[in-house]
């Protein structure tokens, strides 16, 4: 039976040494730094492979400084990365061009292998840098960073409320799901998904009710459409140095030829 765990919710939130210098960086600095790493890696063709090495080195240094061990990191990467590499491995068998290698009945082409190598390197770097952002920054801090980086406020507000109720709603759904399972629901084809539709319908009505109650409770506490101001984010020298340092390392590696 399909588990209820595409996204293992328990595998989110900061981990490692929570008081490390990396954890204490301004969220904007972490978002910008890690996005730079991802974009540099994604934009680099295979010939510029030193860029991959530089990005990976920056991520390893980041993880070490944050005290995020390989085991904790792998737990977060496993689900996504195995699926990604599983798809990527098919590429060499379906692309033709270049030299041809025979492995018994299977044959792969050089062009396919090159694409696979590049795709795998980029996917690993991109996924790791997103996982490291999550491992060193709380979701509310990511949202504050994004808001300060001029992401529209409405989107940030929706995301903030979504996160606040996500865990309650997912648990409610899991309870309904176990209720189905305990009554013998074992769908074997997609056509038997109807019961889950009724779960979704009931969930929507409950969720809507919850949303209305939350809204009324907020009104009762003086909510007028704006959230109270918090202490503003402050960029300090370390934050600027972090972004500049990361950008300098990965861009230099990207722009110099191997």
């Amino acid at each position: 039976m399909g588990g209820l765990c595409n996204h293992a919710l328990e595998l989110t939130g900061p981990t490692g040494n929570l008081d490390s210098r990396v954890h204490r960086l301004d969220p904007r600095a972490k978002i910008l730094g890690l996005i730079t790493v991802t974009l540099v890696a994604v934009s680099a063709p295979l010939e510029r492979w030193p860029a991959y090495v530089a990005c990976a080195a920056v991520l390893v240094a980041y993880a070490i400084a944050a005290g995020v061990g390989p085991r904790a990191l792998w737990r977060r990467l496993r689900v996504v990365l195995l699926l990604v590499l599983g798809v990527g491995v098919l590429v060499p068998f379906v692309r033709s061009g270049g030299a041809r290698f025979e492995f018994g009945m299977l044959s792969v082409h050089q062009a396919g292998l090159e694409i696979f190598a590049a795709v795998a390197a980029k996917a690993i770097i991109g996924t790791t840098s997103a996982a490291l952002l999550g491992a060193t920054t709380t979701f509310p801090a990511v949202l504050r960073g994004l808001e300060a980086l001029r992401v529209p406020r409405l989107l940030v507000l929706i995301a903030a409320f979504m996160y606040r109720y996500l865990f309650v709603i997912v648990e409610e759904l899991a309870r309904m799901r176990s209720a189905l399972v305990s009554r013998g629901y074992r769908p074997r084809t997609a056509l038997q998904a109807g019961a889950m539709g009724r779960v979704a319908g009931a969930m929507f009505l409950r969720t809507y009710g919850r949303g209305e109650r939350v809204y009324l409770a907020m009104l009762a506490r003086g909510y007028n459409g704006t959230m109270p101001q918090r202490v503003p984010l402050r960029l300090v020298g370390t934050d600027v140095a972090f972004v500049a340092g990361v950008a300098l390392i990965v861009l230099t590696a990207r722009l110099t030829t191997a």
Partner: peptide
């Protein structure tokens, strides 16, 4: 907006409904 947020959480959650 709070209502939209809660409904986003609903969509997030129902995306976890797996079927064979």
């Amino acid at each position: 907006v709070p209502l939209l947020g809660v409904l986003a959480a609903f969509i997030f959650a129902v995306q976890m409904l797996n079927f064979p």
